[in-house]
């Protein structure tokens, strides 16, 4: 996700861009995605009303974050404890990736069948 850094927090984007960039929405009850809402203990640290600090956002939503202000790039992902939990649930997470022709394919397109997910590479 690329964005422009603003003078708020460690790495800020506009509140109005949050949902498009992350799928999360800032509501009065906290940070929400689908049915899940995380309360925000220190709202002033997260947002000044216009900007939202993604470093605080990552903290409040238990995500990992790496950003580079110089290059104006940020990456968010699941933290190690979150990944450990999702792996041990044995519930196969869905994903969508392009095939070699550029067509988007979801793992769930093959639901209700036995699936072999093979990781390989050219290297």
């Amino acid at each position: 996700m690329a964005t422009s850094s603003r003078e708020f927090g460690e790495f800020a984007i506009l509140v109005s861009d949050l949902e498009g960039a992350t799928g999360w929405v800032l509501k009065p009850e906290g940070l929400c995605k689908g049915d899940i809402c995380y309360p925000v203990r220190n709202a002033g640290e997260l947002s000044d009303g216009v900007n939202i600090d993604l470093a605080s956002f990552a903290k409040f939503t238990n995500q990992s974050i790496v950003f580079d202000r110089g290059y104006e790039v940020v990456a968010l992902g699941d933290s190690a404890p979150t990944r450990a939990e999702s792996m041990s649930s044995l519930d196969a997470p869905d994903f969508m990736l392009p095939d070699i022709y550029g067509k988007q394919v979801s793992f769930s397109d093959f639901n209700r069948r036995k699936r072999l997910l093979l990781a390989w590479s050219s290297w």
Binding site: S86, D91, F95, L117, L118, A119, W120
Partner: peptide, 22 residues
Amino acid sequence: VADLYGFVNVPAAIWVDENNKI
């Protein structure tokens, strides 16, 4: 997907059954 499923090298595979269980 390497992150989601814990792939740390190739070739490697995951089996998922009809009930979406690993």
